[in-house]
Design a protein around this nucleic acid. Structure first.
Lengths: 204, 204
DNA sequence: TAACCTATTTAACAGTAATTAGGTAAATCG
DNA sequence: CGATTTACCTAATTACTGTTAAATAGGTTA
């Protein structure tokens, strides 16, 4: 609604609308990620952006809307990265590995999301927003599911469990990943694939 | 400190100290689990216990102390259950499967924890409490690690990654588990083991 | 120059959180 | 019996929280 304004400026430290909006989204992403929804107060976010708390309402109608925007942005970036990384690959296992690497690198190396797949949403969200968020999450998982569906698994391996297993380890990698540790995000992703490859039907 | 008191009672609905303490711990566990630390207020907990908010301070010095007690209790129960389920088993893979089943059943079927392994602690906790919690978590993970160390893995599988992978899927199982769904907690656990068994050195 | 718009501030509000101080009824003890 | 202890309550306090209303400084447009 407010996204096409351009004119006007103000005091020395004023920014243009789009710049400020993106800045707030970045800061909010980092703070929601670091502290969780409740403990990342609007004051925290505003302080980091160098503006007053009330000014946030010029860009977002409520904290909930800000949260939904953060999730939206994160999931879209993640989806784009994974799609881009996998589209040129045809072998199912290679495709899954590329997806894993893109997922981990998006989550861990760059500071984009990680907030995304928390088990329960951290707030009592409005009906509409909740549906929107769930849809986006399903859309992303669909990308992965489509890859998993191409893979031939041993008969005794439950495909849905395999998918959940993969997604959970991707998400949880944020727990044990340390920037200064011995494994890079890509190595973690490839290591996960190495483990899962034991499930291949053609046990190589 | 206060654990040996016995005497005295009060109005009709008063409980003895230990009973009330356990009741509060159970309720707090369920509420922290369902709503998260911030959104589970002391008023919520007190209401459910049928007492006033201020009365909680008769049992716990602060919300933080209550949280630490909940974690403590949960991890001890979980550890006990897993130890008990595995001590009589000698084959490493069977042992791990028993651990997985005990873990999942403790987390999912009975309503004990699940709060336990959230990536980041939900509060800025005091130095001492934090150390205590981390120690307990490490102690539990040690149980699992000792089992994993007995397992023979393919050469290209990173043992630490394998361990983290296992723990993360155990924890995340709460995400997709539904009491009315097609899989029981034990089936989820066994399914996870079936997936991981592809990593066995003697590829059966 | 006058009118308007934009990004921001100041100030206040209403609600709720955790916490504390002090009191009270009933059971127990000597 | 009276004194004490136990388990609780009432009421107030402090410190935020998200949110709104209104004002303002400076740039744009006519």
């Amino acid at each position: 609604m407010k996204s096409k304004r351009r004119r006007g400026a103000g005091a020395a430290n004023k920014l243009q609308y789009d710049e400020r909006e993106q800045q707030i989204l970045s800061i909010a992403t980092a703070l929601f990620e670091a502290r969780g929804y409740e403990r990342a107060s609007l004051k925290n976010i505003a302080d980091e952006a160098g503006i007053e708390t009330a000014s946030l309402y010029y860009y977002f109608a409520s904290k909930e809307e800000l949260y939904v925007s953060v999730m939206d942005r994160s999931l879209r970036i993640l989806g784009d990265n994974v799609r881009r990384a996998t589209e040129a690959v045809s072998d199912p296992w290679d495709k899954l590995e590329c997806a894993a690497i893109a997922h981990c690198e998006s989550m861990l190396a760059r500071k984009i999301v990680q907030v995304v797949f928390h088990p329960r949403f951290p707030l009592e969200i409005s009906e509409g927003s909740l549906k929107e968020l769930k849809r986006q999450r399903r859309d992303y998982e669909r990308i992965i599911r489509d890859i998993v569906d191409m893979i031939e698994l041993k008969e005794n391996v439950d495909r849905t469990l395999f998918l959940n297993f993969f997604l959970s380890s991707m998400n949880y990698s944020g727990l044990w990943y340390k920037p200064e540790g011995r494994l890079t995000p890509a190595q973690i992703a490839s290591g996960a694939i190495a483990i899962l490859k034991g499930c291949a039907a053609d046990a190589s």
